[in-house]
Design a protein around this nucleic acid. Sequence first.
DNA 1: CGGGATCCCAAGCGATACTG
DNA 2: CAGTATCGCTTGGGATCCCG
Lengths: 252, 252
Amino acid sequence: MAIRAGRGLGQYSGVARALERVGERWALLIVRDLLAGPRRYSDLKSGLPRIPTNILSDRLKELQESGVVRRVPTVRGGYELTAFGRGLEPVVVALERWGWSALGDLAEGEVLTADALAMALRAAFRADAAAELPPTEYVLHVADMSVSALVVGRGLDVVPVGPGALPQPRRSVPDVAPEAVLELAVEPSGFRDLLTGLPGAVAVKGPPHGVTILDGGSALLERFRLTFRIEPVAPPAGVTDADATGDAASVA
Amino acid sequence: MAIRAGRGLGQYSGVARALERVGERWALLIVRDLLAGPRRYSDLKSGLPRIPTNILSDRLKELQESGVVRRVPTVRGGYELTAFGRGLEPVVVALERWGWSALGDLAEGEVLTADALAMALRAAFRADAAAELPPTEYVLHVADMSVSALVVGRGLDVVPVGPGALPQPRRSVPDVAPEAVLELAVEPSGFRDLLTGLPGAVAVKGPPHGVTILDGGSALLERFRLTFRIEPVAPPAGVTDADATGDAASVA
DNA sequence: CGGGATCCCAAGCGATACTG
DNA sequence: CAGTATCGCTTGGGATCCCG
């Protein structure tokens, strides 16, 4: 048990305490997926293709000991966040927003999962802008998965649709029928531009590359872009050698 | 290139990109300290007593390659955050707030540094409450170090005072003379209660244990507690055994 | 068949020593 | 003071195997 002494960061600090609990590799990605709802072991594994199974098992055990994750009693292999674990949402959202500026292009072998998509939408959500718009449902199809985002007032509820596991009935927004529905087919490459682009650009240039409107008008797409937007923080500047941040692709 | 294959998380996601850049051990603690201002190698080393020097060297190199950190040209061994790196403040603040709920007591061998203190104050800052209070300076003495927090309207500027390195003249708040100054001597143990306690408690019970007013009245202490407060998110509940998971100190 | 546990190897981390 | 070099140990990665 003297091992534990080596693990601590030796700091009496909230940041250090947080990192001791969820700072290990893969831990916050597991939390990200569980923020979308309860998941089974195999769901987590398939959503995180590069994680070795023993590491996933270890992390889940550690996260349970930290009080971040608990097992779902009724479901074999089911895991969910505790209230304490759900408190990590601001952390994950902040990471998502910051990392967005360094997203670059889809690299080979990288996956885009429904849970990652859901978190991106949560991080991009503008409650202030949404509050002035009528209740709307946005359905996004990316590759082989789909997510539905229901926006009512300042509330947002994102649920993965399709092969997602453990269907959760809880909708955190009031049960109102949306005034309108926008349905988009999005290429993984166009997904970044969809959330990054400036509002108003649709009216001028139409949908970004890789985005097709399946249902709804371009006015609804504009509404989407007012509701969901991630402001780039600052370019990863000052890099001496090449890094893979290919944000130069979008020629202005 | 093959190196990257092993390191990458294989996810096209902002969270994954962020973790690939600042998810390594110690990285976010280095960022935390640099958020307080430029620091020299030795400052970072002494603020992070448990970090091996080669790891500090490696992390600084990696953070420079990621565009998070740059060297201060005029100072030997000086480092500072880039604009991109300063964009991590919401991440660090969110971690600080969450980790605060799991802070526990000061464990043996743990240090409380001025930079950690400054980040705690930043995370605890309530701009809404501060906006309705007159400009105030708060000086905290903890162990052998001191920090000064100047609050003007919704603005906050925290500077470590004393043996801190690279004195930075920049004050982000307007240069107003504070209407009042509160000076506190705080034990490391009392520091947590000072930021966690509910407002109003001072009037009833006086200062928390381990907090002594050196200058200013208890009304100013109440002002402090309105201005700086970290709401606990939720207890690290649901743990099977004691909540001492992660720390070796089994002693209560 | 899904949910993990066990191996082995490589890479990362930690402590110390050493150099410009 | 600001790192680099080296070494043993711990951890993560990948494949396999076991158990219900």
